[in-house]
Measured scan of single mutants.
Amino acid sequence: CHSECLGNCSQPDDPTKCVACRNFYLDGRCVETCPPPYYHFQDWRCVNFSFCQDLHHKCKNSRRQGCHQYVIHNNKCIPECPSGYTMNSSNLLCTPCLGPCPKVCHLLEGEKTIDSVTSAQELRGCTVINGSLIINIRGGNNLAAELEANLGLIEEISGYLKIRRSYALVSLSFFRKLRLIRGETLEIGNYSFYALDNQNLRQLWDWSKHNLTITQGKLFFHYNPKLCLSEIHKMEEVSGTKGRQERNDIALKTNGDQASCENELLKFSYIRTSFDKILLRWEPYWPPDFRDLLGFMLFYKEAPYQNVTEFDGQDACGSNSWTVVDIDPPLRSNDPKSQNHPGWLMRGLKPWTQYAIFVKTLVTFSDERRTYGAKSDIIYVQTDATNPSVPLDPISVSNSSSQIILKWKPPSDPNGNITHYLVFWERQAEDSELFELDYCLKGLKLPSRTWSPPFESEDSQKHNQSEYEDSAGECCSCPKTDSQILKELEESSFRKTFEDYLHNVVFVPRKT
């Protein structure tokens, strides 16, 4: 048989008469490798580009789960590009990614509803959504962080984005990388972005840091009482949809009607710091009717980097990364020049730590249904340095008659930039024990000054392991946590139920 035959053949030295091919099969003959313009397919066939392209389009058009959109890589027609490569849609070739590779997620039936953290986790790592997304989240724990972890990498949506009755959302900033909504599939009414009845939605994105392009379709905003109209108009300008909307697409009466839409800028007039305090004062603000001013709200939190936005980490279910302080308005003076500047002394802060701070007014709604208010920009203030805590785990070892090696770990709280350490030492008198000992005694162990690591005695271990207080009263049991108490109650309830079950099964009433 021919060298490319495997198993047997019907005619000697003829690659077209093989029972099976050793390498690849091409047009009725066995070959060692697939010549151009053919590609290896499933490690035994040679196919042309049209064959591989037909497989790709067949799966793409069917949208069946589990099928493969075949691509070409290293002269092979394979189910998908290997790690580190992405497909070129024009020629199906796998090309190296520039940075992290995109991950295209194809949605069944063309859309997916995100109504819980669990459903959001199914899209973790996706960068391109081939379909439409509907966000409908009523509640949950730590929602802002969970949504950002699972949806934060999405850069492109081919269909539309719909935010509907998501009472738990305060902001859409968890879509931190969303840059493009194509609108290839539109919501009824030709809408590519749809926001309806979101009672706590206050911000779409921080438009000073976020760009969003909507290729096709219109915007729809109705019944978002805490979303200011200025935020919607800003989205029109940034996304390129200005002029597409009709009169009733953006409701003037049901958007922002319960919001404090600040239209003035508060400026800080005085800032002073110490290692654990920050004193702030800002310019006074009074609405047209000074009785509408209820006070100020001061927001602050630790910020290692200057990239904080107002609604980071917030949701309507209680999660809030900001510390909020309510401040009463100052006494009002008739003389504008003698107006008191409101302020606040922030206490209990960490030394040498940068804080993000902003302040906003708290006002009631005027009778004319106009909203007044003022808010400052987010500023960054760093507390002063102070003395560091003591170095940890000092170790001293003498390696000769004239040297001592000293080692330690950095302090747990540096409280500033540590530039150097101060080492103090003092000579001590020799131990009298060394002169009084009889060095001729056998088995004498000389006193040693070398360091030995501390260890816990058996008594201390027994005390720590004991669940009861000892007789001397030195140790006591740790208080039980809520989960331990709940577990004990469940076990007790189970024992009672099981005992009742045994009584009912074992003891049967005697027939009379």
Results as ranks from 00 to 15, higher is better:
382 Q>V: 15
285 Y>K: 02
172 L>V: 14
295 G>F: 04
354 Q>W: 13
346 M>Y: 06
400 S>N: 15
217 G>C: 06
125 G>H: 05
352 W>Y: 05
162 K>S: 10
121 Q>F: 04
372 Y>N: 05
249 D>T: 15
121 Q>C: 02
185 T>W: 11
269 S>D: 14
238 V>I: 13
381 V>F: 05
175 F>R: 05
287 P>R: 01
254 T>L: 09
201 L>W: 10
103 K>G: 13
389 S>Q: 01
339 Q>W: 09
268 F>P: 06
177 K>A: 08
184 E>W: 10
378 I>K: 08
262 E>A: 00
167 Y>A: 11
396 S>M: 06
294 L>G: 02
252 L>G: 13
403 Q>I: 08
302 E>H: 14
297 M>C: 07
110 G>N: 06
231 E>T: 15
193 F>T: 05
360 K>N: 03
198 N>R: 02
191 Y>A: 11
273 T>L: 07
400 S>Q: 15
146 E>F: 09
338 S>E: 14
179 R>P: 03
224 N>W: 11
354 Q>T: 05
195 A>G: 14
104 V>E: 04
260 S>K: 03
347 R>Q: 04
345 L>I: 12
319 S>K: 09
224 N>P: 02
183 G>F: 06
390 V>S: 10
136 N>Q: 04
247 R>L: 12
147 L>A: 06
256 G>L: 05
157 I>L: 05
245 Q>E: 13
335 D>V: 13
305 Y>N: 00
261 C>K: 03
214 I>C: 15
341 H>Q: 14
350 K>N: 08
143 L>N: 05
361 T>Q: 03
171 S>C: 06
339 Q>R: 09
402 S>F: 07
333 S>R: 14
244 R>D: 10
341 H>Y: 12
224 N>L: 06
168 A>T: 12
274 S>K: 15
403 Q>R: 11
406 L>F: 15
279 L>H: 14
394 P>L: 08
223 Y>N: 02
177 K>G: 04
213 T>N: 11
290 F>Y: 14
127 T>W: 15
306 Q>L: 10
376 S>G: 09
173 S>R: 10
171 S>H: 15
277 K>F: 05
155 E>S: 10
150 N>C: 03
311 F>V: 07
304 P>T: 09
204 L>I: 08
226 K>R: 06
293 L>H: 00
296 F>P: 00
361 T>V: 01
196 L>R: 05
106 H>W: 04
190 N>I: 15
353 T>R: 07
334 N>T: 12
157 I>S: 02
198 N>H: 01
246 E>G: 15
217 G>K: 14
188 I>P: 05
294 L>R: 12
292 D>Y: 06
249 D>P: 13
155 E>I: 08
242 K>R: 15
298 L>C: 15
131 G>L: 01
252 L>W: 12
236 E>W: 15
124 R>S: 07
167 Y>H: 03
382 Q>D: 03
388 P>I: 01
272 R>K: 15
367 D>V: 10
227 L>N: 00
282 W>V: 01
277 K>L: 12
154 I>N: 00
244 R>K: 14
333 S>Q: 13
141 N>S: 11
197 D>N: 14
143 L>W: 14
126 C>V: 01
331 L>Y: 05
372 Y>A: 03
309 T>S: 15
295 G>Q: 15
202 R>Y: 05
206 D>F: 06
147 L>V: 02
298 L>T: 04
233 H>A: 05
204 L>A: 15
142 N>S: 15
347 R>D: 06
202 R>L: 06
141 N>D: 02
343 G>S: 08
298 L>D: 00
407 K>W: 14
204 L>K: 04
253 K>R: 13
160 Y>A: 02
327 I>K: 14
310 E>W: 14
153 L>I: 10
397 V>F: 15
301 K>A: 04
300 Y>I: 10
282 W>E: 00
306 Q>V: 11
167 Y>M: 08
143 L>G: 09
127 T>V: 14
172 L>I: 15
380 Y>F: 11
148 E>K: 10
251 A>W: 15
379 I>Q: 12
193 F>I: 08
405 I>M: 02
275 F>S: 13
146 E>D: 01
295 G>K: 15
307 N>H: 11
345 L>M: 09
134 I>R: 03
164 R>L: 14
217 G>W: 11
137 I>A: 13
241 T>G: 15
162 K>E: 04
353 T>V: 07
242 K>F: 09
280 L>Y: 01
286 W>T: 03
338 S>H: 09
114 I>L: 04
166 S>G: 04
194 Y>F: 14
345 L>T: 04
332 R>K: 11
234 K>I: 13
192 S>C: 10
318 G>K: 14
103 K>M: 02
293 L>W: 01
305 Y>V: 14
167 Y>F: 13
150 N>T: 04
200 N>D: 04
180 L>Q: 06
293 L>R: 01
343 G>I: 15
238 V>S: 13
189 G>F: 14
160 Y>W: 12
219 L>G: 12
118 T>F: 06
266 L>Q: 02
246 E>H: 05
269 S>T: 07
242 K>L: 13
228 C>G: 05
158 S>M: 12
247 R>T: 11
187 E>V: 11
371 T>L: 08
249 D>L: 14
156 E>Y: 05
173 S>E: 10
291 R>A: 02
246 E>W: 03
209 K>E: 06
371 T>A: 07
368 E>T: 10
255 N>F: 11
126 C>F: 02
180 L>N: 07
136 N>S: 06
187 E>K: 12
212 L>F: 13
128 V>R: 08
305 Y>W: 14
225 P>G: 14
185 T>P: 13
349 L>F: 05
303 A>M: 07
203 Q>H: 05
322 W>I: 13
234 K>H: 08
382 Q>S: 05
283 E>T: 12
224 N>S: 00
219 L>T: 14
410 P>T: 13
189 G>A: 13
411 P>L: 04
121 Q>K: 04
118 T>V: 11
261 C>M: 02
106 H>A: 06
323 T>P: 05
213 T>Q: 10
157 I>D: 01
159 G>T: 03
159 G>W: 03
298 L>A: 03
155 E>G: 09
218 K>C: 15
109 E>K: 14
195 A>S: 12
154 I>R: 01
206 D>Q: 12
388 P>Y: 05
146 E>W: 08
383 T>K: 03
258 Q>F: 02
114 I>K: 01
128 V>Q: 02
261 C>P: 01
